[in-house]
């Protein structure tokens, strides 16, 4: 270790990963429905894609969680995005190739992808 910059670099690299263990109020939660219905409809590749995308972009303030059945099994896989202070956004009939768009437009830039939301799918 020859400089403080090196130490900071290591800290930055690892922090996103260990941050998960701190209790936090802020930060964006992305929740994937992973009950039997969700898994059967293909929630797992969606979850994996989300993780890859979040990790690729070093989004330290994003937590990917899973949850049980939300109740509308016919629209699975379902992903809900909770941004603090905003109403949650529910994406339905998700697939792995839709993930990148949601992460870039919604999570990073703050513009929900209306086309994929439950409101749109039902109309």
């Amino acid at each position: 270790m020859k400089s403080i910059a090196e130490l900071e670099a290591i800290k930055k690299k690892v922090l996103d990963n260990v941050n998960l263990r701190k209790e936090r109020e802020d930060g964006i939660r992305v929740v994937v429905g992973m009950a039997t219905c969700g898994i059967a409809a293909g929630a797992r590749p969606v979850m994996t894609a989300l993780l890859e995308e979040v990790s690729k972009r070093n989004l330290g303030n994003v937590v990917v969680e899973q949850t049980g059945c939300i109740g509308i099994c016919r629209l699975e896989p379902i992903v809900e995005v909770f941004v603090p202070g905003e109403e949650k956004v529910t994406y339905v009939k998700m697939s792995a190739d839709k993930v990148a768009k949601i992460v870039t437009e919604h999570i990073v830039n703050g513009n929900p992808v209306v086309d994929y939301t439950i409101g749109k799918a039902e109309n």
Binding site: V14, D16, N17, L20, L51, V54, V64, E65
Partner: peptide
């Protein structure tokens, strides 16, 4: 480093 969605602390 890979990002894990969950950590199991034992």
């Amino acid at each position: 480093m890979d990002l894990y969605r969950s950590h199991v602390l034992i």
